[in-house]
Structure formats: structure tokens, C-alpha cells
Design a protein around this nucleic acid. Sequence first.
DNA 1: AAATCGCTGTGGTCTAGTCCTCTTCCGCCT
DNA 2: AGGCGGAAGAGGACTAGACCACAGCGATTT
Lengths: 235, 235
Amino acid sequence: MVYKYEVISEQLIKRIGETLGPHDALPPERELAEEYGVSRMTVRAAIAKLTEQSRVYQVHGSGTFVASMDVSKAPRLTSFTEDMVSRGFDPSSSVLGAWTEPSSPEVAERLKIEPGTQCMRLKRLRLADGRPMALEETRIPQSLFSLAQLDLGRSLYEQLTEAGLDLYRAEQEIRSVSLTAADSKLLQVDVGAPALCVERLGCSRRGSPIELAQTLYRSDRYSFRFPITRDGNEK
Amino acid sequence: MVYKYEVISEQLIKRIGETLGPHDALPPERELAEEYGVSRMTVRAAIAKLTEQSRVYQVHGSGTFVASMDVSKAPRLTSFTEDMVSRGFDPSSSVLGAWTEPSSPEVAERLKIEPGTQCMRLKRLRLADGRPMALEETRIPQSLFSLAQLDLGRSLYEQLTEAGLDLYRAEQEIRSVSLTAADSKLLQVDVGAPALCVERLGCSRRGSPIELAQTLYRSDRYSFRFPITRDGNEK
DNA sequence: AAATCGCTGTGGTCTAGTCCTCTTCCGCCT
DNA sequence: AGGCGGAAGAGGACTAGACCACAGCGATTT
């Protein structure tokens, strides 16, 4: 909380939580500016932050209003662990395999490396409250992170961060699949049961690919929920 | 293109497309400000727009750079028609049923109306290039839009907009399901085939629910692709 | 050779205003 | 009663500056 607009943003969140209900109007920007002794632009920066988080919405000519809650937040790039914790589960995992192999042409293209380049591959069964939740397979170019430096007992993301490989953005594809016999057995569901297949290409802030992961989620225990808006729009 | 920052934003997109490649730096903000004869804040507004669309990224203390392309845009709230066109398909649809019925408690709760209130219900088979793509079921409170005023030959969204019912935000849930015998026949796939089930609650700008829709997409023809980022940040 | 310091240039924050655009509503006119 | 117009008040765009924080690099120091 170093900057003024961050402080004001926090203050406003507090006010929203305490004295304002959904669709109640916040004080006008000019009023807030005077109240906090800052310029109006600063207040607008604070409100802009709240708008991004969809805590409030603004209507031109009318005012700034508290958004109705029970709206899910936009999905963030999270690790399985973070995701499960936020869903109220206790996450754990069991490693099914970890090895290094030359990358296939398809994998290489997505990770933007030469086909055949060595890649670490990690296959894990992910559990929530001790019961199977997802089957995850991760590929990382060996040039970025080698199997030798991997500690299977610790969070992969944590170790990537320590190695200076921060995941900042990811490209994600979600589809529906039927589980194979082997996968359904691991996830402890019937053969052919539906599952959400999420393929994710994780990239650094600069946009260079770091990790390619495919995760199969049990459809009876997992779904995606997120808001979308109309704008972003015109051409 | 009414405002300066919009014009500048367009200009920059043109420059990016023509003379700049991924990770090339844009001119400094101060330089752009002078070049376009505007204040730096206006240039920043233009760049902020491009950042939202992840066409560029900024690094504090370093510069503004062109993002690597081939990143999919964040999903927008679109009609089936818009969605299909943007995917390069020719959309059409056939109405399977349209009627009015009292809302169930579950539906009523989501639409924030009294249980039992009359709701219009519309069931359509959606086609892409003449082949089944999705099965869509829509519910709209009769108090907002009545079956009588519906023209089945025209876009539902278009008619909603004309009635002043603009969808601005939606809450969306995605899961994986196995198709029932009846649904699989309509979609012309095998019984029990996997499908993406998307449930969407469309709301006005003010946040009041307008439409509850459930769509089953053929998994062999449809998947979601979108970017996510790490931030949306702290606490 | 390696570490450190400081300079320069970049984006980030902030000010104190002005004018524009849109919504809302009240009062006037019909 | 109904419609219309205009004023008030809200957010949106914009200016011309100032200073802050961070990255990168080269020179100085160790």
C-alpha cells in the first residue's frame, strides 16, 4: 500500500463492505477527491482498480455503484494447489512418473523449441481432500528447468519462480473428452466418463513459452465458473 | 473513433501491424505525445486500451513492447451467431420449441424472480455450415420479453437489444457431460458422447438478470480458447 | 575480473484544473 | 395527463506540467 490510489482503493472496499449494499451509489468522484485530499484523477485511478476487480461499476452520467456480489472473479493463472485451496479443498498429489524425452514436433512447436529437444515430462495425479480430482501432465524444456534440479516433494511453481521462470500469462484451451480406460481407473470413475480437458501453455511476462500442461478434471467434481462482459469491443 | 485516445490507439495498431514485430519497442510515451500533439496522459490512455487487449505489454523502467501475437483474445459475451462467424463458420438454427411455463425454484433463484413466475423458454438446434454444433435452451422472464413479441426468424439478441434489454455481463459455468440419447440424436453423435455444457446467466449493465441459457456443444467441433494472466492481483 | 555507484531514460503516479457527454428530473408548455 | 426542454450533476476526456520508481548501462572502485 504505497500509493495514494491503492490506499483509497482499500478504503473504498472497506466502505463497501460496511455501509453500502449492492447497487448503492458511491459518493461522486469530486466529493471523494476532496474528502481524501487528492486530485480527482487519483480517485479515478482507485475506482478504476475496483472496476477491474468488478467490485463496482460506473454508469456515464449517473454514478458509481457497488456491483452485486456473488459474481465469480475472472480466472487467474493459478497452480492446482492455489485453485483447490480457493475452492475449499485440501490439495495433495501423487507423482505417476517423471522423465526426460525428446519433444515431439507438436509439443516443440507450441513451446517454440526445436523438435527433438529434450523436455522434462511430469505426470501427476492430483487429489482434493484425498480423492482423485485431476490427472496432470506437464512438459518443460530441459534447457529451462532440468529434472535433476526438481524436488518432487515441493510445488513445481514455487521452484519455477525460484529459478526466475515466473509464469505470467497462459493460453488455455478447454474441451470435453471421454476418459480412456487407463485414465478413468486412475481417477476412479467409470470408463468413458466425461472429463474437462484443459491444455495450458504457460508463458513468461515477455511471452516466451515455459510450460505446456494438460489436465483432465473429473467432471463430477470440477467445473469452470467465470464472468464475461460485452465490451473489449468494437473492432 | 470520436476521441483522441481512440484515434491514437488505432494508429498504433496500424504501426504494430506494419513496421513492428513481436517484442519490438514502441516509441516512448513522451515521444508519442509530442508526435501526435497530445498530452502524455492521452497517449497512456491509448496504450492502456492496447494493454487490455494484450496487443502490447509495458515494463516499468524499460518500455512498451509489442506482444507476441497468436494469443487468443479474452472471451467476450457474444451470441452464438457472432461466435460462429468469428470462428469462420456459417451459422444457422432450427427452433425445436418455444413456449411459456412457470419457472422452477432453481431457475427463479438464478433469474431473481418469484418461483412460478411465467418464463419464456426457447429450445434451438444450432448449426454451423449446416451441421449440428450445439443444442441451446434459453429462458427469459415473460415480464421482460414475451413470447408474443418474439420473431423466431430473427436474432434473439437483436430483439432483446431493441427492447432495451442489452446483455452486458454474464456469469458462465463450463462443465463436461455425456449426452443423453435424445440430445445425441439431435446433435448427430453417438449416445454418451462427451459435450461441453455451458450455462450462462446474462445480465444488464445494472446487474439484473435477463436470460438464463444452457448450451451443449459437440466436443468434436467446439472448444474454448482464451488467455489468462497472473495478476488481477494481490489480495 | 568483479562488484558497486550513479546517470539516463523509461513507465508510474499525481496535481489542479477545463471542457465534453450522458443521465436524470423538474418544470413548463401543450 | 402527457410530452418536451433545459438545468444540474454525474462520469469521461484532456491538458501541461511535476515528481517518483525502476531498468539498464557504463564508469568507477574494489
